[in-house]
Design a protein around this nucleic acid. Structure first.
Lengths: 339, 339
DNA sequence: GTTGACATCCAAAACGATTTGGATTATGCT
DNA sequence: AGCATAATCCAAATCGTTTTGGATGTCAAC
């Protein structure tokens, strides 16, 4: 049995393809009896419109696109959680999600081109935006709607972000309130848009507190747990080592904790640790990780909702959303110290 | 500037649409000089083929489909990890992934129909198969290739699964070797295909060991952490409570651990706990969770690879893959006991 | 000067839907 | 009867590709 098309139903019912199409689409200019007849036949034949054909003609696909990085990120809970939020909200509005896992570089941009210029999606979600981001430049030049998770200071495009600068600043104050004076930062790669913002929050806090800016207390990692561990080795290996370490994401913080424990030190007591993101594993870590919460799932939902609004041409009021950071204090940052 | 199509290039170059198409597709029946001219123009105009049109004509989409459950979706690391594996391998072969997050029931099947009958995908991945699964019946009746994660005993379709029966059986033996005699099972909902298999492994182990089959030691959860906690309340509330608890997935095991700790008991020392899956959170839990490992990411890769093989009509040798379970012994299952 | 082989090109027919712009018939109102 | 109006229906164009089945021209061989 071949797949039923409008033509099949047309032949079967004696009405034209036009009328069949309009009957099923609910137009008013078809007789109710005719419509019922056509619907019955369609049901009987198990008719399902060929969406590819529909998309070609009608210029929209009810699909959101997202390209996720392939490099070693498969363990990245961040993207997975974000994806869940986007997918959940997209489904509520009847949208599907087209995903492409790509390595960074040439392949990545061509995945964007396939989706956008190839007319496969109605809009794009861009996560973890970078400085001078080629993907962003591309999207700006295209006519498709898009939304971004993250922002750089001066940027003008629809985004949602957590105020990382303030978050880091507050966390450094938290460490200081617990009596720490040598507070280290495991920074993020320069090319990420959030990296300079978080670094600025760190410097600002030191200035607030009248603490010196010591470049040896800043080590840059690559967001992986391993790089967090390597940073600890470097930080604790030098004279006058830090007593508190703040990592720019949880993955690195967890790596740092492992390395500290491996050195025979106790996280929280000997060295305080905090992260950024509040991924699920943060609460389950031992000791549980103090962190700056990003409501990633909710951000995903919000991104999808904004994007769909843009696609539908609705008046979207909040194109630039900067969420307040929320400090989640757990055991890894220790207790207030004497002295 | 409008989007460039074959027609644009045809007008620009003076050659017909046919020739332009064939030039870009690399057919031999076009002069090399002509081809180069056309390629240059295409590059200059930033030509990107309309994939929707291509798909309509050529009947395939280079896209794999997957419907994931919406319930408890965001907390479900299992699906996220699987998705990563599928996506990673799909990308290697030039395939994208079409995702639809759907609630169970009517919506779910219609998402399948949209993808498959709607000609949006070349093949489907079905995860967490159920007993008498309507989705599976649908896929069997469709002409599209598909692969399944999970199986029931007598089933005949392309699947990959971990031998859960043997896994559970071995874990019960592990508990027994540590001196436990009252070993409880937090079972999975009946309608999942793996539920009866794992239960059978539990009974088989008890028989192996000459232990009595006590129905009060089996509580069924719904795979969520909360249901694991509830099961603990029920199990430890009764006279002659179990000293070891084996949950049919890690999520429930983690919930169980939390409930045990909340009762003032120590996991591992007072009550041994084990799970199934080895999700990332299992290793990070405190104490780290003993579990039966499913290499979910690798299974995802393998599913994608098999599916793409089927799509391409290659001879796929291993349509039924049953992986050996791997016990991962960590601290939550305690130490061998005296007596 | 025919013939065949080869190289190069293209018009037109798909693919399966939506939409435009009427055509046809029946009805109501002077 | 004549005319406007409403209710139904549909042929054909369109979306942007791929593919089929030649058409045309050139050149060497006979």
């Amino acid at each position: 049995m071949k797949k039923a098309t409008l033509k099949t139903i047309s032949d079967e019912s004696g009405f034209s393809i036009t009328t069949v199409s309009r009957a099923l689409a609910g137009y008013a200019d078809v007789n109710e009896r005719t419509r019922q007849l056509i619907i019955d036949i369609a049901d009987r034949l198990g008719y399902q419109p060929n969406l590819t054909a529909r998309h070609l003609r009608s210029k929209h696909t009810n699909t959101l696109g997202m390209v996720i990085p392939l490099t070693a990120y498969y363990s990245d809970q961040f993207f997975m959680t974000l994806l869940s939020g986007v997918g959940q909200q997209a489904a509520r509005f009847g949208y599907d999600l087209l995903l492409s896992a790509q390595m960074r570089g040439e392949e990545e941009i061509s995945a964007y081109r396939r989706m956008v210029d190839g007319s496969r999606v109605d809009g794009m979600v861009l996560a973890r935006v970078r400085q001078r981001d080629a993907r962003l430049d591309y999207l700006k030049g295209s006519a498709r709607p898009y939304v971004v998770f993250g922002h750089a200071d001066e940027d003008d495009y629809p985004y949602i972000d957590v105020d990382g600068k303030t978050g880091i600043r507050q966390m450094v104050h938290h460490f200081a309130a617990y009596g720490h004076r040598r507070i280290a930062l495991i920074a993020a790669p320069d090319d990420l848009a959030f990296a300079p913002l978080r670094l600025a929050g760190y410097w600002a806090a030191l200035d607030d507190l009248g603490l010196p800016r010591d470049p040896r207390l800043v080590v840059t990692g690559d967001l992986s747990a391993d790089s967090g561990a390597a940073a600890v080795t470097q930080l604790l290996g030098q004279p006058d080592p830090p007593t508190a370490i703040l990592a720019c994401n949880d993955q690195m913080a967890l790596g740092a904790m492992a390395a500290i424990t491996a050195r025979g030190l106790r996280v929280g007591d000997d060295v305080a640790v905090a992260g950024f993101d509040d991924i699920p594993a943060a609460a389950n870590a031992s000791p549980p990780l103090t962190t700056i919460r990003q409501p990633i799932f909710e951000i995903g939902q919000s991104l999808a909702q904004t994007l769909i609004g843009l696609i539908r041409g609705e008046a979207v009021h909040d194109l630039h959303v900067l969420l307040d950071p929320e400090l989640v204090i757990r055991a890894s940052s220790g207790k207030p110290r004497a002295g």
